[in-house]
Design a binder for these strands. Structure first.
Length: 345
DNA sequence: AAGCGAAGCAACCGCGAACCG
DNA sequence: GCGGTTCGCGGTTGCTTCGCT
C-alpha cells in the first residue's frame, strides 16, 4: 500500500510507511543474524530507520508467524474474555492468541469490539451493563429496535441495574423458555419460592463456547405479538401481584392452582412494559408488579419476525449481525448458567 | 464525478521496566 | 547501588480507504 511521501527526521532517519525494499532488507538481515540488538540493527542492515521502528515493523508486520485476515469469532470471544480480566494489557492478551499482535488486537478492540459491546449495553471498560440515556431510549423506543435478540442483553443489563428482582425474574423466564419453547409456566416459577442470586458482574462470554446449549436460546417460532394466540396470554388476578425482594425470599406465596402460559412475543412485550413501568416508577425499587406484568398487552416492541440462525453460521465469516445475536445469546446463556449453578433451575 | 466525513489501521511517541557495565 | 542504555507497552496520530451525499 503506497502512502504519502516519507517523512524525515533531522538526524536523517526515515519515518513513515515502510517500502517493500526496506521490508526486504529487514527480513533478510533478521533471517541471517536474528534481532539481538535493535539499536544497531538498522545500521547493519543498511536501513535509515531507528531501531524502534525496525522492531515495530518486524513485530507487527513482517514476523513470519503473523496471522493475517479477519479475526475469527473464537478469537474475538477470547479477546473480550481476557480483556475483562486483564484490561488493556494488549501484549498479555496477544500472548494468548497465536499469530496476533498486541497492536492488531488493540486496533481491533478500539474499532470493532468496543462498539459492539456498547451496542449491547455493556460498558467496554468495566464489562458490566451500562445505563445511559441514549441506550435507554434505543431500548424503549420500538422504532429504533433493529434486533430483538440484541435488546435482550440490553434489557437484562437495564434490569439488573434497576431491580435485582427484575433480573432474576427475566433470567428465570428466559431459562424456562429454553426448556419449553412454547410456553412458560409461571406457577412453577413462583413455586421456586426463592430468588436467585444477582450476579454483580454478569459474564457474557465463556470458554469454551457451547453452541448447542446457546442455540437453546434461539427464540425461534416467533409470531407477531399482535397475532398472539389467546391461549398464550392468560392473566389471572389470583397470582400475587407483588414480589417483595427480601434477602432473596418471596414474601407472598403463589397460588398453586393457576398456570399461565404465554409465548415469547408476549414475554417480549411484558418485559418491555415492565421496564417502562420500572423506569417510570423509581430506580432501585425492590419490588415490581407481577400482576401488571401478566396483564400487560403486546406492544410493538418486538418486531414481527426473528430469523432462526443456525449455530453453524456463528463461526469464521459470521456477519456482524450474527455476531451480535450470538453475543446476546451468550449473555443469556451465562446468566442462566449462574442460575443453574445455584441449583435454582 | 467530486467532496466530505467516518472507519480502519500502520506507525509513531512517551514512558516505565529491564538490563548491563 | 547507580546511571546509562535498550526494550517493550499502551496511547495516540495521521494517512488511506470506504461509503454516502
Amino acid at each position: 500500500m503506497e502512502k504519502s511521501p516519507s517523512r524525515e527526521k533531522n538526524n536523517g532517519l526515515k519515518k513513515g510507511p515502510w517500502t517493500p525494499e526496506e521490508d526486504r532488507k529487514l527480513i533478510d538481515y533478521i533471517q541471517k543474524h536474528g534481532h539481538c540488538k535493535w539499536r544497531t540493527l538498522p545500521k547493519n542492515a543498511g536501513l535509515k530507520r531507528c531501531g524502534k521502528s525496525c522492531r515495530l515493523r518486524w513485530a507487527n508486520y513482517l514476523r513470519p508467524d503473523i496471522k493475517r485476515g479477519r479475526f475469527s469469532f473464537e478469537e474475538e470471544e477470547a479477546i473480550i474474555q481476557l480483556h475483562s480480566v486483564l484490561g488493556n494489557k494488549w501484549s498479555t492478551i496477544a500472548a494468548s492468541l497465536p499469530g496476533r499482535t498486541d497492536n492488531e488486537i488493540k486496533n481491533y478492540w478500539n474499532t470493532h469490539i468496543k462498539k459492539r459491546l456498547l451496542k449491547m449495553g455493556i460498558d467496554p471498560v468495566t464489562h458490566t451493563p451500562c445505563l445511559d440515556l441514549l441506550q435507554l431510549s434505543s431500548i424503549l423506543n420500538p422504532s429504533l429496535c433493529t434486533s430483538p435478540q440484541l435488546n435482550y442483553s440490553g434489557l437484562l443489563g437495564m434490569a439488573s441495574m434497576l431491580n435485582p428482582n427484575l433480573l432474576s425474574f427475566l433470567t428465570t423466564l428466559l431459562s424456562s423458555q429454553s426448556k419449553n419453547p412454547d410456553t412458560i409456566n409461571t406457577n412453577q416459577l413462583l413455586q421456586q419460592n426463592q430468588l436467585p442470586q444477582v450476579q454483580n458482574q454478569p459474564q457474557y462470554c465463556s470458554q469454551p463456547m457451547q453452541l448447542n446449549s446457546v442455540q437453546a436460546f434461539q427464540p425461534n417460532q416467533l409470531q407477531d405479538p399482535i397475532q398472539d394466540s389467546p391461549a398464550c396470554a392468560t392473566p389471572n388476578t389470583s397470582i400475587p401481584n407483588l414480589w417483595q425482594y427480601n434477602g432473596g425470599q418471596l414474601e407472598q406465596q403463589p397460588d398453586q392452582s393457576q398456570t399461565h402460559n404465554f409465548s415469547l412475543p408476549k414475554l417480549n412485550s411484558m418485559i418491555n412494559n415492565l421496564l417502562k413501568n420500572q423506569v417510570s416508577q423509581s430506580q432501585n425499587s425492590s419490588t415490581f408488579n407481577l400482576n401488571a406484568l401478566l396483564h400487560s398487552t403486546a406492544s410493538s416492541f418486538c418486531p414481527s419476525t426473528l430469523n432462526s440462525s443456525s449455530s453453524t453460521t456463528f463461526v469464521n465469516g459470521a456477519t456482524e449481525d450474527e455476531r451480535d445475536t450470538y453475543c446476546s445469546n451468550m449473555l443469556m446463556y451465562n446468566i442462566s448458567n449462574g442460575l443453574n449453578d445455584s441449583g435454582l433451575l
